[in-house]
Simulated assay, not measured.
Amino acid sequence: MGRGRVELKMIENKINRQVTFSKRRHGLMKKAHELSVLCDAEIALIIFSSRGKVYDFGSSSVAKTLERYQRCCIAPQDSTIERETQGWYHEVTKLKAKYESLQRTQRHLLGEDLGPLSVKEEKQLEGALTLARQRKTQIMVEQMEDLRKKERHLGDLNKHLKFNIVLSILEAEGQNLKAIQDLWSSGAADGSSSYHVHPSQSKPMDCDPGPVLQIGYPHHDTKSFSGETNFIHGWVL
Rank of each mutant, 00 (worst) to 15 (best):
I139A: 03
S59D: 08
P76R: 13
S118A: 05
R152Y: 05
E151R: 07
E91K: 15
V37L: 04
Q214T: 05
T137A: 03
I11G: 02
G216L: 05
I139R: 08
I81Q: 05
C207E: 10
R152I: 06
K14C: 04
L125R: 00
S168N: 01
K136D: 03
T20P: 00
A188R: 06
G216V: 10
L154Y: 10
H219C: 08
C207A: 10
L125C: 00
S202D: 10
A172D: 04
V197K: 07
L28S: 01
W88P: 00
F57P: 03
K136I: 03
H220D: 04
A97M: 10
K23T: 14
M144C: 00
H153I: 05
G87I: 14
L154D: 12
R25G: 12
G115W: 14
L177I: 11
Q214V: 14
R3K: 09
L117I: 06
I165M: 01
A132L: 08
F21I: 07
H233L: 09
K223Q: 09
H90K: 12
E112G: 03
I15M: 09
I43L: 05
L8E: 02
L8H: 06
L213F: 07
A75N: 09
Q201M: 12
L109H: 10
G187T: 03
T229F: 11
C73G: 05
R25V: 08
R68S: 15
G127F: 00
R24P: 01
S192M: 02
G58C: 12
Q77Y: 14
C72S: 13
S185R: 06
E173A: 02
C73S: 06
S226L: 11
E34N: 14
L157F: 09
V212P: 06
I169C: 05
T85W: 14
E100A: 15
M205W: 07
T105D: 07
I74L: 15
S36D: 02
V141S: 15
S186V: 08
L154Q: 14
K64Q: 13
H233R: 06
I215M: 09
E67M: 13
R135S: 09
G174E: 05
P211W: 07
M1S: 03
F225S: 12
G227R: 03
G87P: 06
G174F: 01
S22N: 14
S194Y: 04
